[in-house]
Amino acid sequence: MSSSPEAAPSPEFLAEETRRYHHFITLALWLAVVTGAEIVLIFVPVSMPVVLTVLSLMSAGKFFAVILWFMHLIYDKRLLFWIFVAALALAFATFTALLALFSVDVLDPKWIS
C-alpha cells in the first residue's frame, strides 16, 4: 500500500463513477427483491422441478449480477472474465462428474468381484 502524488480524477471519470453508483443502488434493490422472491417461492405449492429450475435461475442471476457489476467484470478486461468463467466451468464439471459417478446405484456384479 503505497502513496504517490497523483492528479485529481477527471470529470469524465467522476461521471462514470456516478453512473456506476446508480447501477449499484438499482442492483442492490434488485438483489433484495429476488432473495425475497426465492424465500416465498419455496412455500408455493408448485411441482418441485419447476421450483428447483426457477430457484436455480434466480441464484444464477444473482451470482452473475454480483460478479459483473459489483466485481466490475463488465467494466474490466475480458481476460479476468474468462479466468473466472474457466474456474466456474471446472467446478461445475467436477460436480457433474461426481453426480454421474455416484448415480451408479446398481453395479454389475462382474465388476465387484
Binding site: 479476468l80 479466468i83 473466472f84 474457466a86 474456474a87 466456474l88 471446472l90 467446478a91 461445475f92 467436477t94 460436480f95 461426481l98 453426480l99 455416484f102
Partner: peptide
Amino acid sequence: MWLFLASDCMFFGTLISTHLL
C-alpha cells in the same frame, strides 16, 4: 486476486458438490 478467487471457486465447488452428493 482474480486467479486466487478462481481457485477458491473450484475449492467451494468441491465442498458444495460433496455436501449435495
